[in-house]
């Protein structure tokens, strides 16, 4: 069973996850601006920048994160940002929530000058997340687990990160067993998505280069978190 402490931990994570969503006026823009590749690229970079701000606010609410070494906090955010953003986008796109304008978002992503060889694995990932029909608690915990991955580049005290990630994995494992008694493999499937995310991380670096080639500019916050010069 999930212990009292684990219930408190889960509640904090889910509340933070729900509190930090992309601002509605930003999402509405998806419907308003015209559909040129240029405009789509600008909108997507604006949304990605907002997603990074939301990600940092969510991360600050993960119990124990702010007590980590400051440099390690930055290393974890830089190392996990792309994966956490793909996970969040997959959850938004598969939620088909009316106020997220998912069709408009998908349309703009497809017509934003992104290279085809990157588009395919990305939408395959979105589909694979959609098929899991994840509960909000699972989404929030999986995002926190992604951020607290100890073996990111430049993390000095990996044990301290492991000590934060372990309890999240334990709660998620129990939650999956309780919520999906007919699918004993469900927890393993969730962790399998984290492996897929690492592959996407690699594609992402290449995608940025292809966009760079067409002289597309990213915002200062995206340049910092994606290490783009």
């Amino acid at each position: 069973a999930i212990t009292k402490d684990q219930q408190v931990l889960m509640k904090v994570i889910v509340e933070a996850y729900n509190r930090h969503q992309i601002p509605q006026d930003m999402a509405k823009k998806l419907l308003q601006e015209q559909y040129s590749a240029e405009e789509n690229f600008l909108l997507l970079t604006e949304m990605a920048t907002s997603q990074v701000q939301v990600l940092v606010e969510f991360t600050k609410n993960i119990p124990g994160f702010l007590s980590l070494d400051h440099e390690d906090q930055i290393a974890l955010l830089k190392g996990s940002a792309v994966e956490a953003m793909f996970l969040r986008s997959a959850q938004v796109l598969s939620s088909k929530k009316p106020n997220c304008h998912t069709d408009a978002l998908e349309e703009r992503i497809r017509k934003s000058g992104m290279s085809e060889e990157f588009m395919t694995p990305m939408f395959n990932f979105y589909k694979s997340i959609g098929k899991l029909h994840m509960m909000q608690e699972e989404q929030a915990l999986l995002t926190a687990i992604t951020i607290l991955t100890p073996d990111r580049p430049y993390v000095k005290d990996q044990q301290a990160v492991e000590r934060l990630q372990e309890p999240m994995l334990d709660v998620l494992r129990k939650l999956c067993a309780l919520q999906h008694p007919q699918e004993p493999q469900y927890f393993a499937h969730l962790l399998g998505r984290l492996t897929e995310l690492r592959t996407l991380n690699h594609y992402h670096a290449e995608m940025l280069t292809s966009w760079r080639v067409n002289d597309h500019k990213f915002t200062p916050l995206l340049c910092e978190i994606w290490d783009v010069q």
Partner: peptide
């Protein structure tokens, strides 16, 4: 060196 935007966001009070 450019001040880190990430550091600024991290140091801002939570839920700002």
């Amino acid at each position: 060196e450019e001040p880190s935007l990430l550091k600024k966001l991290l140091l801002a009070p939570a839920n700002s």
